[in-house]
Design a protein around this nucleic acid. Structure first.
Ligand SMILES: [Mn+2]
Ligand SMILES: [Mn+2]
Ligand SMILES: [Mn+2]
Ligand SMILES: [Mn+2]
Lengths: 222, 222
DNA sequence: ATAATATTTTAGAGTAATCTAAATTAATTA
DNA sequence: TAATTAATTTAGATTACTCTAAAATATTAT
């Protein structure tokens, strides 16, 4: 039905769409897939023909419900495989993306659903991104940026908005992985840098630029 | 380096080669991959160019050491994924082949080696076929056909030579899976059909045609 | 509003894999 | 040995995806 290439395009278009009401531009897709605009135009015609996107030349592209369903199913597979790679095969969170990029195209639905069950129906992937359910429903995590954190509050790291291997390795080193509890001891009023305090009373210093790419939630004792 | 298609061709050529000293014929490859002879000829030229096979037109094809190494690495991946699918995700042995056929092309070597470790370094796949090691070494199982079984001997099912889903389901029903112990109660002198006796004193009847496609080993108490 | 610039599309071509039909070569039969 | 049959290869097309360069359209600046 859909080729791996079509799936990658749909995923890219979906990710570029979410939270942006305007149509996605040809050049944005080309950038995100590191391919030429000419190739993108060809593919847009093909996806449009299959009613997976709405495409008007020179006007950009909007994903349809049908296209979104395909995109979410690939995203589900991608994130479930990432959980498998970290939790079961013990890969680091900065190593799993490339492998999941291949595994997500393995076509069996039954395989995905058994994998989901084996992993214990995880809600988020190793980067804190939510895993769509079988019906393509995605529950928003309600996270906010660490840059918005206040002192005298307890927070929990819930994800990242920069997924690059370098950034992930940096956070690993700092101990800022999803799940980790912390409070903000001090915020510098000039450059907005922060000193974070962990549960064990150790701490770490992070710049505002870094903080912007870390997601967190207010932590409430259960 | 090698595309999925090239890998499938090499695997097919390898399987058709093993135990047959004569070169593999174009038509045999076409049959085994259900493709046209014209397509096979094209691919043979390409694989020959890459020194993965030795090809002389009209004379058939022989796999090189280099080609064999690639084939064995794909076979290793295929069989390890099959173990994962049966042992971990609890698929039946007749369901796993098609999925493994896709998973075997996922390229990460580190993934394969972690999977191997997670599975406990299995020696054989769910169908009793041996799993090549990292260096592409394949230890022959030393199995023989159930058709050669004698009465008053204790045997263990060790594999199959027919891998079709129908045959596997049939054996499942009969309780003749790899690992099962049995002895032969009776062999009909006219049609060579057999009555097999299991450990729990239950038994089953099988024709000579079926027996030929079941592999076994003499069982010695440890 | 016109010109300059940026973006997008089209044109034309290439690679990988596939097919059918025709031509070639090999094997079998008479 | 010659004719017939079978197997294999070549020729010519097709589909999916990609590229560069040129043409078309849209946006921005003067
Ligand atoms: Mn992908
Ligand atoms: Mn992820
Ligand atoms: Mn395969
Ligand atoms: Mn197998």
């Amino acid at each position: 039905m859909t080729t791996s290439t079509e799936e990658n395009y749909l995923k890219s278009i979906y990710h570029l769409s979410v939270g942006h009401p305007n149509p996605v531009l040809t050049s944005e897709i080309a950038d995100s897939l590191t391919t030429s605009s000419a190739s993108v135009t060809d593919m847009l015609k093909k996806l449009s023909e299959k009613n997976l996107i709405e495409y008007e030349r020179y006007k950009g592209v909007r994903i349809t419900r049908k296209g979104e369903r395909v995109a979410l199913s690939i995203i589900r597979r991608h994130r479930l495989w990432e959980v498998f790679l970290t939790d079961v095969l013990k890969f680091r969170w900065d190593e799993v993306h490339e492998m999941a990029e291949e595994l997500e195209h393995v076509s069996s639905d039954e395989l995905v659903s058994r994998l989901d069950a084996f992993l214990g129906y995880p809600k988020v992937d190793p980067h804190g991104d939510p895993i769509p359910d079988t019906n393509g429903k995605l529950f928003p995590s309600g996270s906010l940026s660490l840059a918005e954190a206040q002192t005298a509050q307890k927070y929990q790291v819930s994800g990242v908005s920069d997924h690059s291997a370098g950034f992930l390795q940096f956070l690993q080193k700092k101990g800022l992985m999803p799940g980790v509890l912390f409070s903000v001891k001090e915020i510098d009023e000039f450059d907005k840098s922060m000193y974070l305090l962990f549960e064990d009373n150790s701490g770490t210093f992070i710049s505002h630029e870094i903080a912007k790419n870390i997601l967190m939630k207010l932590y409430v004792n259960s």
